[in-house]
Design a protein around this nucleic acid. Structure first.
Lengths: 110, 110
DNA sequence: TACTGTACTTTGACATTCTAGGCATCACTC
DNA sequence: GAGTGATGCCTAGAATGTCAAAGTACAGTA
């Protein structure tokens, strides 16, 4: 693992995916790229992590998928955030804030 | 899970344990309490999570253990941060900072 | 023709956490 | 002196999620 890249912690990927889709529908490959861009290259999502996650997230009703074609005419599966997904994103962001706050407290404790 | 408690994400427990021991040697039960205190009750570590983690961390040489007696005369196993453990704590704190920064970037991305 | 980049999927390995128990000792209360 | 709750350690099994590695397919390009 390179020095400038953070490992993903279990549980953070869903939030990242939902967040990426919050900016508009995308296919899987595009999600990986968008997360890379949004994090300014600090976060790299592996395909082998993403696709199972997409399946899982869709099962839970937070995203929906539809086959379509991208701008170059190639087939791709497009994922869209559902209303429930938008709610879930808020939940996960709140959880993250809570955890980050708790960790911060621990770190400043004497 | 209650509303005021954050779930631990995989990978954060080691850092918390090392941090707790950074303030002085402790037995397992005390580590749980200290983490609870330090996080002002936001973080709860289960015994079933902690003891395997302690074993794992000791195997890696970041802590050492010794049986002793606590202030009330009861037997307990005391864990102490090693020099390597102190280094590891710094590494994990840096990783956490990196991840938190990356997540922050993603969240503010438009 | 071969190679590169895009795009989706599956498999198996791996690590970590949690639930749910068990065990023992001690202090306190009824 | 029996029960209860807090202290203290440990294990087994299940669930979860991430990753590495591989395969498939197609379009463009050299």
């Amino acid at each position: 693992m390179s020095q400038t890249k953070a490992d993903l912690l279990q549980g953070t990927l869903d939030m990242l995916v939902l967040k990426a889709l919050g900016l508009g529908s995308l296919h899987g490959y595009g999600i990986i790229q968008r997360i890379g861009q949004m994090s300014e290259g600090m976060l790299t999502v592996e395909q082998g992590s993403l696709y199972p996650a997409l399946y899982r997230i869709e099962q839970r009703g937070w995203i929906s998928s539809k086959w379509g074609t991208n701008e170059t005419g190639r087939k791709a599966k497009f994922y869209t955030l559902t209303r429930a997904g938008r709610r879930q994103l808020a939940v996960e962001e709140a959880s993250w804030d809570m955890l980050a706050l708790a960790i911060a407290k621990v770190r400043q404790a004497t």
